[in-house]
Design a protein around this nucleic acid. Structure first.
Lengths: 205, 205
DNA sequence: TCAAAAAAATGAACGTTGTTCAAAAAATAA
DNA sequence: TTATTTTTTGAACAACGTTCATTTTTTTGA
């Protein structure tokens, strides 16, 4: 019994060792440069061992993507103390963008890269719970805003969705190098200026 | 002289043959499945020949991405006849989304995939002219709206940017499988419902 | 304590990939 | 025709994800 317990702990430890090694390489060199051999080298195990613990590369990327959502949850902690839902909503966008820009590779993996979704499809897993929960947090805050009399004439879910889309779209264009190429008047602050414009619109709703 | 001319024409023809072959495979099987050997097989040439005409795979993807922008321009043709700029702006979003959803792989290549941007960086090319021009078309229409008295209190470029971001964000989430996973009330019409919500907001500005 | 059984870790091997480049084939020039 | 230039070729290379028979390590039972 205790041996089985220890074994289970060791398995879990090695599993995390692989994931942490993967994450380190991932952040240092980017998702494109990640290889199973690199990960194995990083943690001084053979490639075969990695495949004992993970079905394939997609499975590793899916678990890293889940870790990303935990980290996003950490960023969101500071929002809980904000009583007024509209204030919280405004701050939520800032926090979301902050996370995206400070953890570009992670954000990309969570919301852009196809691999984690393919891992969900090919397993017996239900839906994309990480995404559903994160969107739920946004939706709750928007719902509270509506209870307070804001956004009258609008529908909860579509409104929440386009708010998500707007912020995601900005992060996405930035991370995938579509803002650096376009000749903006103020290329360095276009995300910030854009979000300010969004806040102005929120005030009118 | 005439021989040199014919040779130049033949070179251009083979170049287009490669690009068209690439595009066919691209649309049929998706960007992930595209390989140089596949392209070469498709057009009955050897891999070596492909590398005579294109520096590397990124160069092929970049040229395909440019073709995508030409095709987007085709979709935008129908907008020119719309006199009222606000009507045109509203329709522009629909047209943009239509293009994105009917040409998902192409849209992905144009606005998400990193390869075409890497090709721009590694060449002596200036900026991302395709993107700058497309954004310019949006900006012009928004500017005309403002001339007609809409969007008072807002700034042209940030406002245009968040409109682009909003629509791009929706397309992006859809194409990268982030809408199918989330438990929406109406999963099948969330993009449509979202855009309707956006139009309601536009009316208030 | 020690042989047998079970579990864990290994790395060579397979089929792909993008890319290169000496050699072969074809077209042009003299 | 023969020499020269241009075009095309495909074998070869290093690196990739993945598999699995073999080896190493750990646990078991007397």
């Amino acid at each position: 019994m205790t041996i089985a317990d220890r074994k289970a702990r060791e398995k879990e430890a090695l599993r995390m060792l692989i994931l942490n090694g993967a994450k380190k390489l991932f952040i240092e060199k980017g998702i494109e440069q990640i290889t199973i051999r690199n990960i194995a080298d990083e943690i001084d195990y053979s490639v075969g061992t990695v495949y004992v613990y993970f079905k394939d590369k997609n499975a590793i990327l899916h678990d890293l993507h889940s870790i990303g959502f935990q980290e996003l949850g950490g960023y969101f902690q500071e929002l809980f103390s904000i009583e007024d839902p509209l204030d919280r909503l405004k701050k939520m966008g800032i926090t979301y963008m902050k996370f995206a820009l400070e953890n570009q590779e992670m954000y990309d993996l969570m919301f852009n890269v196809k691999a984690p979704m393919e891992s969900i499809e090919s397993s017996e897993k239900e839906d994309w719970n990480e995404g559903t929960n994160a969107f739920g947090a946004l939706k709750n805050t928007v719902a509270q805003c509506m209870e307070n009399g804001h956004f009258s004439g609008h529908s909860l879910e579509p409104l929440s969705f386009i708010i998500w889309s707007l912020v995601h779209g900005m992060c996405c264009l930035e991370i995938r190098n579509r803002t650096k190429g376009v000749k903006f008047d103020n290329p360095d602050t276009i995300l910030y200026d854009g979000y300010k414009e969004f806040l102005k619109i929120l005030e009118k709703l």
